[in-house]
């Protein structure tokens, strides 16, 4: 089976120094590393939000690095989903408008269907009753779950998440992580940058980056609620061994 995502010798300024890895469809991987190691830069360059200096990024049979800005935007809109640490949403739209927004921009004709799907996603993440609220009228955890809904509206092949729980308290972070685990269980592929060993322990694989290079990889297998504690301890030990 061909990999969903193949990254080959990716370089960017002095931050990424030849990164290569693969991801299979349905995987959820965490990218970890100390501050300034290049975790976020890797995510931005893999997703085409930033332009790499050299190297290749294949999303199935599409080489992203060589595409122009418009084509990259098109790939991001139709085949990728994004969740950020800062819960960026359009402040002049309410929750459901924000979720439906990418779909409406991609296909204005079926507006009604997009809104029905947006509401369905909100319901799945237990925030259906917040649909008409302003983004300022909901909690951080609720807003981040709404952002996950937005990332799913176009039924993407992969979701990129940059420190999705970084700005949340533990309870909200758990709600958000449960949401990610839920969508991964349903088959979504997730690449997540995180500082948090507990979050990373929920993922199937962890890539450890230092000075722009992958210095180690840990395979944990699919998340198992009964194994949570052990997995976290394993991750902590591994990180310590990597010099974390």
């Amino acid at each position: 089976m061909s990999a969903l995502l193949r990254v080959i010798d990716l370089r960017k300024d002095d931050i990424l120094k030849g990164i290569s890895f693969e991801m299979q469809a349905g995987q959820m991987i965490a990218v970890m590393g100390p501050s300034g190691s290049g975790k976020s830069t890797l995510l931005y360059n893999v997703s085409g939000m930033d332009q790499a200096d050299s190297g290749e990024v294949w999303l199935y049979d599409t080489q992203i690095v060589s595409l122009d800005e418009d084509d990259k935007a098109d790939i991001r809109l139709n085949r990728m989903g994004f969740v950020f640490q800062q819960m960026n949403m359009l402040s002049n739209l309410n929750i459901i408008d924000n979720i439906a927004f990418p779909a409406v921009c991609a296909d204005r004709k079926n507006k009604r269907e997009h809104y029905i799907r947006a509401q369905k996603l909100l319901d799945e993440f237990h925030i259906g009753d917040l649909a008409q609220r302003s983004i300022k009228e909901v909690s951080g955890g609720q807003l981040q779950r709404a952002c996950i809904c937005r990332s799913l509206i176009m039924d993407p092949q992969i979701i990129f998440a940059d420190e999705p729980t970084g700005a949340l308290n533990r309870t909200a972070a758990k709600e958000v992580m449960d949401a990610f685990l839920g969508i991964n269980k349903k088959g979504a592929t997730v690449m997540m940058v995180t500082h948090d060993s507990w979050i990373a322990s929920k993922c199937e694989r962890i890539l450890y980056i230092l000075d722009g290079q992958i210095r180690g990889e840990l395979s944990l297998g699919k998340s198992d609620p009964n194994e949570d504690k052990n997995r976290e301890q394993k991750v902590v030990h591994w990180l310590e061994s990597m010099g974390w």
């Binding site: 997703s47 939000m49 418009d70 935007a73 098109d74 790939i75 991001r76 809109l77 139709n78 990728m80 989903g81 994004f82 950020f84 960026n88 949403m89 359009l90 927004f101 990418p102 921009c105 991609a106 937005r150 990332s151």
Partner: peptide, 8 residues
């Protein structure tokens, strides 16, 4: 954010 999610 709009650019990131692929709005042209």
């Amino acid at each position: 954010m709009m650019k990131a999610v692929g709005i042209s």
